[in-house]
Design a protein around this nucleic acid. Structure first.
Lengths: 199, 199
DNA sequence: TCATTTAGTGAACGACACGTACATTATCAT
DNA sequence: ATGATAATGTACGTGTCGTTCACTAAATGA
């Protein structure tokens, strides 16, 4: 699911050092948590990992790639969907799970990664394929089931619906204009399912 | 509305050069459009503006501050709300206006600014006070009018509703997982007003 | 007129991180 | 042993940052 480079297939020559690989990911994750993306420089990571800069550049193309690998390495959250059949409570539960995962530094670092992706196409690609896309596919499946069960109108555009469910969460994560609370999750789901129009 | 530093109040001493101030903003805006935030370095801006680096550092604290001032200087879009009394069409019109404003490079640069704000507290503050906050206040007023007119349920949380209207737009602007079309604007408004639940 | 005050200039600097090159050493398969 | 590949340490050139310094330019007021 991530783009973590795996040890090269067994063959001739000295094999890739698993110790070095893990040391890099742990050091990078530590630095991300402690000081954010800005302090997770290649030189700092190399230093803390007890590894040569050159070794890092051999396996990762740039700082962003190391950072996102380190993030996923540490926060291997499953965040799995439960599909109980009640789309309202399932969606709210999933939103609460994500809010919980993004509380604290993990959320701030994710915001920084998304931010950095705006000027780093490689990071944007990894973030899209390793985080956004799989999560969107899982959510789409849940919503299509809900449509099949007759809980959601079949004419609703699923991608738009997903954005109205999840984008508010990321938007608050990044702009900090309002807090990410469980209440927020409930209101998002209620608003979008029942609408806000007066009867 | 922006944090553009104005010429110091009249007094003793050489007055601030309006020529230099404008040259910096124009040069920065040009560079932003041509090559994005990364190419709008202080040295490049100074060079193109025909101005000394020191002059820039005298009036702006860092690159992000210049960039956002330059952005607002060039894209002084009004994006005013029309309040015709029909909240559905007013919101859709406003979303379409924003989508239109964000088509092309202006949208990409805004995404980069938001991204940079994740690691630049000063930029985040300027973006919040100079862009997000005034827009949210205007939107909140429109929504409260709609509540007063009985078009929206009075128990709806206005901040959450605003996020469900606008965050999807910014989210697509930044993640590019789906296009920003006028259709998208219509669906957002329709979904949130009427809900997506089957009858 | 002339001192005072503030703004703008150009050149240079140290710091930092980037990404790369080189020679050397380590560890595997055959 | 030999060949292949990985990891290391050191060093380098580049770019950008933000600052310092001495100097010039343009306004005010006595």
């Amino acid at each position: 699911m991530t783009s973590e480079i795996q040890p090269s297939a067994v063959g001739v020559g000295r094999p890739r050092s698993e110790r070095a690989r893990l040391a890099v990911l742990e050091a990078a994750a530590d630095l991300l948590i402690e000081g954010g993306l800005k302090s997770a420089t290649i030189e700092c990571i190399a230093d803390r990992a007890g590894v040569s800069k050159v070794t890092i550049y051999k396996w990762w193309p740039n700082r962003g790639a190391v950072a996102i690998d380190a993030y996923f390495h540490r926060y291997r959250q499953t965040l799995d969907f439960v599909d109980t059949g009640d789309v309202a409570s399932d969606l709210a539960a999933q939103l609460r799970l994500l809010i919980d995962a993004f509380s604290g530094r993990a959320g701030e670092v994710m915001a920084e990664l998304i931010g950095q992706a705006q000027t780093d196409p490689g990071l944007a690609a990894t973030l899209g394929s390793g985080w956004l896309q799989p999560r969107r596919e899982a959510t789409a499946a849940v919503l299509r089931h809900a449509i099949d069960r007759g809980q959601i109108r079949p004419d609703v555009d699923v991608p738009t619906l997903m954005d109205q469910l999840y984008a508010p969460l990321y938007w608050r994560l990044m702009m900090r204009h309002a807090p990410l609370t469980d209440d927020f999750a409930e209101m998002i789901v209620r608003n979008i399912l029942d609408g806000v129009r007066s009867a």
